[in-house]
């Protein structure tokens, strides 16, 4: 069984490696520009919030369609044809989606941790403005937060053809955040990066993190359910 999972991990990695490279490229560019332009009065939020947004939009590109074959770089027509080869393999559709999600979340974690380490080491303002413990809390909060947009992208990749799926996933997730902000401010996940940020409160924003994780779980279960019942 492990050999099968290993092969699925490799397949999914081969499908998203260039997208991950593109995110790293964009991050390097962003960090290089900010490093070059950093001034003594620079605010830490001017660095971390754009970084958080880059990561949020970046992970939308890392989601595969569960069992749909994702192109490594572009969006050529017809790639989904190999989906028939995939679903004819003796493996459950649940496992196909789960491995896809696992690879995407590992990639998301890697890019987030590396971005955080880079920000900590390259920018004295980060080290001056925050303690290592608070920065670690921000990192953990960001990782949990990113599971939401990732799973939204995973869900919409199963439903729609690229590249529209990414756009719609982004819009749908934004709508969900807007609704949370207006209906249930206490669990408004964006507040975890505003007034509830560990940089201000010096503690983890548990309600927001729990909401992020729950939303991600619901989106993941929906994606699995769609793949399991969908006709190909």
């Amino acid at each position: 069984m492990w050999a099968v999972i290993e092969m699925l991990l490799i397949k999914n990695w081969l499908e998203t490696r260039w997208r991950l490279t593109a995110i790293f490229g964009y991050l390097i560019l962003f960090l290089a520009i900010n490093y070059h332009n950093q001034a003594p009065g620079m605010k830490v939020s001017n660095l971390l919030i754009p970084l958080w947004m880059i990561l949020t939009f970046g992970v939308l590109t890392l989601a595969g369609g569960g069992v749909k074959t994702q192109s490594p770089a572009g969006f050529p027509e017809g790639l989904a044809e190999s989906t028939q080869f995939t679903i004819a393999l003796p493996v459950s559709r649940l496992r196909l989606v789960a491995v896809r999600a696992a690879v995407g979340l590992m990639e998301t974690s890697a890019v987030t941790v590396i971005a955080a380490c880079a920000a900590w080491n390259l920018f004295p303002v980060v080290r001056v403005s925050t303690t290592p413990a608070d920065f670690a809390r921000v990192l953990l909060t960001t990782l949990v937060w990113l599971t939401g947009p990732y799973c939204a992208a995973l869900l919409f990749e199963t439903l729609l053809a690229e590249p529209f799926s990414m756009v719609i996933a982004g819009l749908a997730f934004s709508l969900l955040l807007w609704l949370l902000h207006h209906i249930a401010p206490a669990v408004d996940v964006v507040r975890a990066f505003g007034q509830e940020s560990p940089l201000i409160t010096h503690r983890l924003p548990w309600p927001q993190m729990a909401t992020s994780a729950s939303v991600a779980l619901i989106l993941f279960v929906a994606a699995v359910r769609i793949v399991q019942t969908r006709e190909y």
Partner: peptide, 18 residues
């Protein structure tokens, strides 16, 4: 059941990056 079946699709599409 799928383990007992070999399938060749009409389009002959496999993973192009492999």
């Amino acid at each position: 059941m799928r383990r007992r079946i070999g399938f060749v699709s009409e389009s002959k599409h496999l993973y192009p990056y492999m």
